[in-house]
Write a protein that binds this DNA or RNA. Sequence first.
DNA 1: GTCTATATGTGGATAGAC
DNA 2: GTCTATCCACATATAGAC
Lengths: 195, 195
Amino acid sequence: MSARDQLTAAMAELLWERGYAATSPRDVMARAGVGQGSMYHHFGGKHDLAVEAFSAVAEEMAAASSPLDGDGSPLERMKRYLAIPRAGTRGCRVGRMTQDPQVVADPELLAVVAGAFDAMLARWERAIAEAVTAGELPASTVPADLARTLSAVLQGGYVLARAKGSQEPMDAAVRGALSLLDAAHAAARTSDPPD
Amino acid sequence: MSARDQLTAAMAELLWERGYAATSPRDVMARAGVGQGSMYHHFGGKHDLAVEAFSAVAEEMAAASSPLDGDGSPLERMKRYLAIPRAGTRGCRVGRMTQDPQVVADPELLAVVAGAFDAMLARWERAIAEAVTAGELPASTVPADLARTLSAVLQGGYVLARAKGSQEPMDAAVRGALSLLDAAHAAARTSDPPD
DNA sequence: GTCTATATGTGGATAGAC
DNA sequence: GTCTATCCACATATAGAC
């Protein structure tokens, strides 16, 4: 593994553990096991290194929402994706960035964050629209709205889990969302039969 | 206004704008318009000042959930509370703290954050339980779960809004949640008549 | 390419005058 | 009580040797 790769890997880890502002070039070099010269040879500085390291993380996260595009009924895919285990107290690697003032003030970093969310929300919207077409959700459902609601449940779940230092609030938030989706499913069958 | 009050007010503002780690004693003193001596006379340091300033903020936030205890039908109270305007791009003054590594690592500060959420979640749970009793929500509803789901929608709404630098995702997330609650309400009437 | 040495600013706090 | 002066450590980056 090249020094360059060691640096991006170390930066990605530290961005998750400590956030952008709280991560110093020193920390990164120490974890990567390289000297200062290497870092400033390969990157313009902390900012450049963070952009490159975090872009990879963001793509990875966006790809992680692919189960929403998978096989099976749309509603089942949505519920399965919600139920994927998530370590709440560690926080979301992407969502956490939005609370870092230095990230939000940095157009380049913020664009990477926004892009990752856009990709995920697009997948949500497609799955939801398909569920409506299939009669699994009420015809009155607004895919763009529900996509943001369900994405927010996950992001908020991380916040609640970290506030309590416990996994439980995250799991509870997901259970509640699944229950609401079941209710919406029941409402769709009652008032709006698909066939 | 005493120097002490100026300091706590300035710290509360800066905690919101920049977070804990990114706020230096210098910043606080400059905004408060006092010298360094004043700060170290009244407080042991940045930490002590932050605890005192943030405790006031947390109490204020917890009190802001009182509409959940108000008059009217429980479900109506829940919907009204969700629909209260929230400036998404500014983030939640309490929730934002959970993404700050220095806050989570500080038991005293984290306890203040956790306490604020506990108070809010307790109000949610009460209102939800009342809605179930009144037959406005399905009997199968788990108040503790749904409370965390709806609280997460709001917290996640802030995250999405900041990621996009726009109010819209927050409003969309709330609309989607209201729509799900309507579906749950419809399901309760269909399968579980209150009288 | 990678290293060590060095420079400049700031974070957080203490000392002690007024 | 409030101020200014000062201190040490660290963040971030540059210079230049190997």
